[in-house]
Computed example of a mutant assay.
Amino acid sequence: MSKYRIAVIVGSLRKDSFNRQLANALARMGPPDFEFHQPRIDDLPLYNQDDDGHQAAPVLRLKGEIAASQGVLFVTAEYNRSIPGVLKNAIDNASRPYGQSAWAGKPAGVIGASIGSIGTAMAQQHLRNVLAYLDMPTLGQPEAFIHAKDGLFNADGSIGDGSKAFLQGWMNQFVAWVKRHSA
């Protein structure tokens, strides 16, 4: 495969989200044969099973972007010890109607940043449970619970020296995971 297209689902809508910054910095750490894009999830309607027969244009757009990707990188915030509602809504919309999930079989990675000392550990665990049900082979190791503190990002948006080696190692494992599972 000449190029691997990776859908990066950021589980935060905040303009200056640590997780959007992390997603952008991680994309810069990817190899040249990987292309990262962030599908919109802020315009999706709330999932309603009554709409399964006539999904809204933003839902169809998201499903198309996932289908066109060889892997998915979830970069999530943690709200009240779980995944943000906007992320769950995107997952639910793109998984329906039953039997027509855009997620099925897509290799995934899960990471996130928070100002809390355990990063997004709880949100990541909850998300992994959802991804297992959706039949997404998900990178298990290394886990990455990123503590968003001074020095995590350089002024240019890249990862600071204190976390660079670890996050490059994580990205290398994610890349290998996608290559192994996207065939």
Rank of each mutant, 00 (worst) to 15 (best):
V110G: 05
Q100A: 13
M136R: 02
K164R: 15
A155C: 00
A77G: 08
G119M: 10
A94D: 06
G71F: 06
S69P: 01
V8K: 05
A176I: 08
A121T: 01
I6G: 08
G160S: 07
V75R: 02
L22S: 10
S163E: 13
L13W: 02
P45D: 12
W103M: 04
F74E: 01
Q124K: 04
G169T: 09
S163K: 13
N19Y: 03
Y4C: 08
S117D: 04
V72S: 03
L73G: 02
G140A: 15
P137R: 10
K15W: 01
F174M: 09
W177Y: 14
G157E: 09
A132D: 08
E143C: 03
Q168I: 03
L46H: 14
P58F: 12
L167K: 07
A102G: 10
K106Y: 12
M136S: 05
A90K: 00
A144M: 15
G11Y: 06
D161G: 09
R5E: 14
I111K: 03
A68G: 10
A67W: 00
Q70I: 03
S163Y: 14
G162W: 00
L167I: 10
L44P: 01
G140E: 14
G169Y: 10
A155Q: 14
L22M: 11
S182T: 13
S101R: 08
K164W: 01
G30A: 15
E143K: 10
A155E: 15
I118C: 00
A183P: 08
G99F: 07
A165F: 01
L26S: 04
L134V: 10
V86C: 11
W177C: 07
S158F: 01
G85T: 14
T138V: 11
Q168T: 14
K3D: 15
T76Y: 01
G71V: 11
G160V: 09
P84Y: 09
M136W: 03
G160Y: 07
S163D: 14
A57H: 03
V130K: 03
D52L: 11
G169C: 08
G11N: 07
S82Y: 11
D42L: 07
R20S: 10
A90D: 02
R96N: 07
Q141T: 14
I9P: 00
I115F: 11
K15L: 07
T138I: 06
R40N: 10
